[in-house]
Amino acid sequence: MAELHERYFDPISLLSEDAMVPCEFQHAVRHLGRVLEPTSTSEDLRKDTRAELPLWLAKSLTERGITRMDAPAVYGEWMQRQVDAGANTVSLKQTPYFYTVGMQCAATMGDSSVAGFLRKAFAERSAKLLTGSLKAPDGAALAAVTSKLNEEEKTLYEAGRQGAAAQEQWWAAGGHTALLLNSNAANKAGVCGVKRRRTTTEAAGDKENMV
């Protein structure tokens, strides 16, 4: 598996690492009992203690063989069966960074079944998501589509919508005649959202000028 490149200055990647992962301690650890469980009577942590650790800590401890990491429940058998039955009906709203966290867990655990499951889920969901986004529904229809998406998918969905809108505007402005006459407008429409709204009026203006 390709090395997952950690983006140090990416706030999203930083937040995604706060996801909790079930771990089991392979060694007894001294002085940590109270940190893990403030009500604990013992200063030390016994071997085989099970605990939920944030991913950033679990990764480091597991790499050093101090804990053993299990896949979080959302990647478990129950979820895999749900996805087998139909990936599009599953709501990932509760797991905003489903794929990022899953990839990191799979890489740390060296478990290819989780990776395969993720790929299957993504392939099925993204196909539906992108064909849906091209239709560009509004209001209630839009809410129905996005209600089951997590943060990662919403970003992808939004990108698809913007791409579709830009293409529509391109055709409205006269397809590639417009592109030849005025490459700037098409470029701008693709680059930033604020400009796109303006190009609608621009396109209307162009038509008036031609008349």
Partner: peptide, 8 residues
């Protein structure tokens, strides 16, 4: 046993 706490 000590290393665990230090790493955390």
């Amino acid at each position: 046993e000590d290393a665990g706490a230090i790493i955390v």
